[in-house]
Amino acid sequence: MDKALSSTLRLQGQACLALGSPFHARLLELAAEDLDAGGPTAGLLAPWNGQDLRGLMAAAVPLRLLGGLHDLVLSGDDPALARAYPQPGKAFDAESAWPEARRAMAGRADRLSAFMEHEPQTNEVRRSACLLGGFLTLAKETGLPLRCFEIAASAGLNLSWDRYRYDLSGLPWGPESPVLLPSDWSGALPPLDAPVRVVHRQACDRRPVDLRDPVQRRRLLAYVWPDQFDRLERIRAAIGVALMQDVAVEAADGVDWTAQSVRPEPGAATVIYHSVFWQYMPAESQAALHQAIEYIGASATLDAPLAWLRMEPPPENMAIMEVRLTMWPGGEERVLAVVHAHGASANWLG
């Protein structure tokens, strides 16, 4: 029995409950009990035996397990498991689903293990609702069109942030769109009247998701929690927009790509942005990216400003999520908002 592994499952279960997925919360508790008893969960998680709690959370081991099971459901290859999983309009609970999940972990261990070798890649599109205030602030304060560069963009769904419709506690922003992003907004409002025009968009990811590939597309869906039907509906709509717009994400390391691809240009505000990515980087990569952005910022001018917009937990408190904006020339940093990790709410401070 590996106590760190079972503790990781339980901690992630608590996080799932706090973020609105009681199904996954209980499923992870049952998986932890099965791990402690030496059941099939122990075999699936054996590659991570001996790692400490911090390393296990950084590797997102519980999310790999949950994603593998959900991918099996979405594929249709295990009808019994699919019937036990959440579906709109049908009663469901983890206690009833667990026997089928445990059977699948024992009988389809090779398939699940192969899925779990790849680190989780999520692309929560409602994080755009948190980043929106930063883009609006930048547009308002500079009066310039925007050049957008997203690091760790996954499938690039948040590269289309200006193509979505937003509802900030009843206040709309954005064009008519198949993607509607509601967010409970408190505090003041960002400058919703700011004129926004995106003149360039570019993105990278170490292992980008090719949405044209149905297997990769399903993998992206698998990391959306199955009892959160609204999130599944939104990501499917956002995938449709990305495919229609032929959104492309370059395969590249974030540090190297930023240093090579991003330069301020006169007549536009250049913005580097990312969300829920920083915490998974090694400390040396964080330092290198920070240095690269500051180097680029040193060449910014009033006519060619640079901004660094990010939605990440502050290092001193990983339990919360903030939106921060740094602008050059000058390098002034501001905390704009404290937000929900999936974009469901924002307390605007900016």
Score class of each variant (00 low, 15 high):
2 D>Y: 03
11 L>V: 09
12 Q>T: 14
16 C>T: 03
18 A>K: 12
29 E>S: 13
32 A>S: 12
32 A>R: 06
42 A>D: 00
43 G>S: 11
44 L>T: 01
46 A>Y: 04
46 A>F: 08
50 G>C: 08
54 R>Y: 12
57 M>D: 13
58 A>Q: 13
59 A>D: 14
62 P>I: 02
64 R>I: 05
68 G>V: 04
70 H>T: 14
79 P>S: 07
82 A>S: 13
83 R>Y: 08
84 A>F: 05
85 Y>L: 02
87 Q>L: 14
88 P>I: 03
103 R>Y: 02
107 G>N: 13
113 S>N: 10
118 H>L: 15
119 E>Y: 15
120 P>L: 08
123 N>C: 12
129 A>R: 07
139 A>E: 01
139 A>Q: 00
144 L>E: 01
150 E>Y: 09
151 I>D: 01
152 A>F: 05
153 A>C: 02
160 S>N: 15
164 Y>C: 07
166 Y>E: 08
168 L>Q: 13
174 G>Y: 09
175 P>Q: 01
183 S>N: 10
189 L>N: 12
194 A>H: 00
196 V>H: 02
196 V>K: 01
201 R>L: 01
215 V>D: 15
219 R>H: 12
220 L>G: 09
222 A>P: 02
241 V>G: 07
248 A>T: 12
250 E>K: 13
254 G>F: 07
259 A>N: 01
265 E>M: 15
274 H>V: 07
277 F>K: 07
277 F>C: 15
279 Q>G: 07
300 A>R: 09
306 L>V: 03
319 A>R: 14
323 V>S: 06
324 R>W: 11
325 L>M: 01
334 R>A: 11
337 A>I: 04
341 A>Q: 14
341 A>M: 12
